[in-house]
């Protein structure tokens, strides 16, 4: 049994301008000890997906199936999902400065989560907080536990956020852009910390990012999202060596390369992400797609392409898959 099995997950919410289908039916699986990277631009539905898995997307209609360790979470009573949150599924948010409470000390915030799920004395919870702060490499954790988030540096704050997630020994961690707010050098440290803890504890990890470099560093599997749907899904090494979807190729092509000839401009995917209010018909990517521009097919504008198996463990949602690979 997989740790997390998501099938046909869709999230729709009402806005003043009309209903928005932020996620339009995606599937993925996370195994214990493995890392799934979800990559996509802002607005591709990756953060909404993570909140929907946690049952934290308030005011949105979530359909489909999210099975955690065999238990269905969609439609489950709020109280039973709440007991899983923090305890078995923990989240690491993007900007720890706003995600941690400014009024309470770091130690308090970790101890609070621990006591909620494990009970016990305040003292034991404090001790646990200091212990995990030490685990994530915060020097002098007993003293730092008594400080407030604004007294931490960005990297230390994100470590504290990870300590908070680890404090209850969860089985799954969902990290939503955990390194985006950090300096590049600190990014690497925090990623290594996250990957190290994941390995050491045998956790399932869902890593949401727009940064392919981050994916390359620690993901086992990758799900590329575009316009609320899955564009391509593959093992990480395959995705980087043999990408199939024109969007994935565009993303990889737009990575800056040190070995590029001097004077060559950075490449970008033309156009901008689709409006969630009025997505284009058919494949959401076709207005920006180089393959469509060249080999334009009515298939691309007729129906939303479904993921099809193109190689072992490799799925691609492109009507022109044969063209691209042929």
């Amino acid at each position: 049994m997989s740790l997390l099995e998501v099938r046909g997950l869709a999230v729709e919410f009402d806005t003043a301008e009309g209903p928005v289908r932020a996620v339009r039916g995606i599937d993925f699986t996370v195994e214990r000890g493995r890392t799934l990277g979800i990559v996509g631009e802002s607005g591709s539905g990756k953060s909404v997906t993570s909140l929907a898995v946690m049952g934290l997307h308030r005011g949105a209609a979530v359909t489909g199936s999210v099975r955690f360790d065999g238990t269905e979470l969609i439609g489950a009573p709020e109280e039973s999902v709440r007991r899983l949150r923090g305890r078995r599924i923990a989240m690491v948010f993007q900007d720890a400065l706003t995600a941690l409470h400014p009024y309470f000390t770091i130690g308090d915030q970790i101890a609070e989560a621990y006591r909620e799920h494990h009970g016990g004395s305040r003292k034991a919870a404090r001790a646990r907080a200091v212990e995990v702060l030490g685990d994530v490499g915060i020097p002098d954790p007993a003293r730092r536990a008594r400080e407030h988030p604004h007294q931490f540096s960005g990297g230390m704050r994100q470590r504290a956020m990870i300590a908070l997630a680890l404090s209850c020994e969860p089985d799954l961690i969902i990290a939503d852009e955990p390194t985006t707010a950090l300096d590049v050098t600190v990014q690497a440290q925090v990623l290594d910390l996250l990957a190290g803890q994941q390995q050491a504890r045998g956790l399932g990890l869902v890593l949401i990012t727009h940064d392919l470099g981050v994916i390359a560093r620690i993901a086992d599997e990758v799900l590329v999202m575009y316009g609320g749907s899955a564009a391509e899904q593959a093992p990480a090494d395959r995705l980087f060596t043999a990408p199939r979807h024109p969007y994935t190729r565009g993303l990889l092509d737009s990575l800056p390369r040190l070995d590029a000839p001097e004077g060559e401009p950075l490449r970008a995917i033309p156009g901008s992400p689709p409006s969630p209010l009025a997505p284009p018909p058919g494949c959401a990517f076709h207005p920006r797609c180089a393959v469509y521009a060249e080999h334009g097919s009515p298939l691309c504008t007729a129906d939303r392409p479904l993921l099809r198996l193109v190689a072992e463990g490799h799925r691609n949602a492109c009507a022109l898959d044969e063209v691209t690979t042929g």
Binding site: L56, G86, M91, F93, D95, T98, H101, P102, E112, A113
Partner: peptide
């Protein structure tokens, strides 16, 4: 605020 979302993600009542 994000910190309220964090409080919910911690599994608090």
């Amino acid at each position: 605020e994000p910190y309220v979302r964090t409080a919910r993600a911690k599994g608090l009542r």
